[in-house]
């Protein structure tokens, strides 16, 4: 009897969409070599509707990644370089008195875009930081009693330089929580670094990537992504992971319920990208590290990377 494979039933991301998603990842991968995991996380976060915090040394491709992603989705791209003398109005915009019409008119700031790269976020003063983060959380800017909605696909990729700390204002834990994920690209490995210097790569480096998707499609995907199902068993596992972060003797503070929700959303997004309409434990495992990376610190304030992996290892899925 021929073994007729049973096709997995419903699939939210159709073959076509999945094909698009794969080619999107591949296209960005042409620019950022050997960082498929990071690219996937950024795109998953974009689909989940969350913002990304990149922590890296200068020159490791943060900006390249940002432009590549914005181009491949055909999004408006703006970049602000944050400095300590920046005011909230430099980000949000300002109301100016128009003598002719004798009214105040609002001049939109750089935040009114689809893809915002906020470079060196920790250089801005807390006042400016919180103005930006508040706008990110509420998707709107309130000024002079008027509310201006941000673009529906509004997405922020903020960067921080972890080494050069002089004259910076470290983001408090409550503000860090507004970023869905945080990640670090790190150095490429030897072979890939070689490729960087190849004529082939250099020639296509300055070419913009053709848009493979659109903000409209992105919004559709976001909607579909929210429908991804989580079974009770998966929720148990999710809760167990969160619980372990709270009861770990070396971790200063465990995940908040908001962080738990972030973990859930990102796992949904990973499942969606993998053409499934249900979450599996592996989605949660994949989402766990980027969600925890900026949220969990040890008691002396260090990054708890090793502990996060330990928690994953210590929590069996059977």
């Amino acid at each position: 009897m021929p073994n007729k494979p049973v096709q997995p039933a419903s699939q939210v991301a159709t073959q076509h969409e999945a094909h698009t998603l794969e080619s999107i990842i591949a296209a960005v991968g042409q620019k950022i070599l050997d960082k498929e995991g990071a690219i996937k996380t950024v795109i998953a976060s974009l689909i989940a509707g969350g913002h990304v915090l990149l922590e890296d040394l200068p020159g490791l491709g943060k900006t390249t990644l940002a432009t590549a992603v914005s181009q491949v989705f055909g999004m408006d791209f703006k970049r602000i370089q944050l400095t300590s003398d920046m005011m909230p109005s430099d980000v949000l915009g300002v109301s100016i008195y128009d003598a002719k019409s004798q009214t105040f008119s609002y001049h939109k700031g750089p935040i009114f875009t689809q893809f915002l790269l906020a470079d060196e976020l920790n250089r801005a003063t807390p006042k400016t930081q919180s103005a930006l983060l508040e706008a990110m959380a509420e998707s709107q800017v309130s000024m002079d009693g008027q509310t201006h909605r941000l673009d529906p696909v509004f997405f922020v990729m903020a960067t921080q330089n972890p080494i050069d700390e002089a004259g910076t204002y470290a983001l408090p834990q409550s503000q860090l929580d507004r970023f869905l994920v945080s990640l670090s690209l790190g150095y490429p490995d030897q072979n890939n670094e070689r490729q960087l210097y190849s004529a082939d790569y250099l020639s296509r480096f300055d070419e913009p990537i053709a848009a493979l998707s659109s903000p409209t499609q992105l919004l559709q995907w976001r909607e579909q992504c929210r429908q991804v199902h989580a079974s009770d068993e998966v929720l148990d596992y999710l809760q167990l992971l969160i619980h372990k972060t709270r009861n770990h003797s070396e971790i200063h503070q465990g995940l908040s319920p908001r962080a738990g929700l972030s973990l859930f959303r990102l796992a949904q997004s990973f499942a969606f990208m993998d053409r499934r309409d249900f979450i599996t434990p592996a989605d949660l495992q994949q989402a766990f590290f980027p969600v925890c990376r900026h949220r969990l610190v040890t008691h002396d304030g260090r990054l708890a990377a090793e502990l996060i992996h330990n928690i994953l290892d210590d929590t069996p899925v059977i």
């Binding site: 049973v6 997995p8 039933a9 199902h229 079974s231 068993e233 499934r276 309409d277 249900f278």
Partner: peptide, 25 residues
């Protein structure tokens, strides 16, 4: 791969169709 896809489908998806048949398979 086949086993994995079916298994995940059977265990975690919202509506597992024809469960008995799936299990046999």
């Amino acid at each position: 791969q086949h086993f994995l896809a079916l298994y995940l489908q059977a265990r975690y998806s919202k509506q597992a169709p024809k469960k008995q048949q799936l299990l046999q398979h």
